[in-house]
């Protein structure tokens, strides 16, 4: 049976825990869009990606078993599609960390600037490393959960995250100077 926006409003047998499709879009749009945004750093591309992911979810709605299944499915499909987008379009915002633009005016960055700076630095990490960091810190997922989504070993995910953090810390530390306590007292 083909799902329709109307038929998706009522969970079928075996989907008792499921929200309607419209509710699922509303509940998870920030998650899906943000994964795309932090990965691509391009709002129109992130929105297009998020729409495509939800349309794919719509086509596969009859296969959804529960709310958790929907969340897992969305994270997985969004991650893989985002990586595909970068690979296909050669949209690499993946400049090296050395090339990434740095704030030049301020001696010390305020919190909002630091956040914005880190956001840009994350977007400059290599694809898999970037996605692992986004899922770890945006979605608060464990390395084991990320491993399932990215179809990798948990140990590889831990290495990716650890190296990603090292790169981010090195760059940020250089920018902020050794006096910044957030960086100075930080150890991994």
């Amino acid at each position: 049976m083909v799902a329709t926006v109307t038929s998706c409003a009522v969970p079928s047998e075996g989907q008792a825990d499921l929200p309607s499709f419209a509710e699922a879009v509303d509940a998870h749009k920030a998650m899906v869009f943000s994964i795309g945004w932090h990965f691509l750093r391009d709002r129109p591309a992130a929105e297009e990606l998020a729409q495509e992911v939800f349309l794919q979810l719509y086509r596969n709605w009859s296969g959804m078993k529960s709310r958790d299944h929907v969340v897992f499915w969305l994270r997985k499909v969004t991650s893989h599609r985002a990586i595909d987008v970068v690979r296909r379009r050669k949209m690499h915002p993946e400049m090296s960390l050395e090339e990434a633009a740095e704030p030049t005016v301020l001696e010390r960055m305020q919190d909002s600037l630091l956040a914005s700076y880190l956001e840009r630095m994350v977007a400059s990490l290599p694809e898999k490393q970037r996605m692992a960091v986004v899922l770890r810190y945006q979605e608060d997922m464990s390395p084991e959960e990320i491993a399932q989504v990215l179809e990798m070993k948990a140990s590889s995910v831990k290495t990716l995250i650890s190296r990603g953090l090292e790169l981010l810390r090195a760059k940020t530390s250089r920018r902020l100077g050794e006096s910044d306590h957030r960086i100075r007292h930080d150890t991994v």
Partner: peptide
Amino acid sequence: TPFEEEVKKALSRHEP
């Protein structure tokens, strides 16, 4: 760690 907290803050969710 505090640095991870900063990364987490930087990667907070955005509304579409």
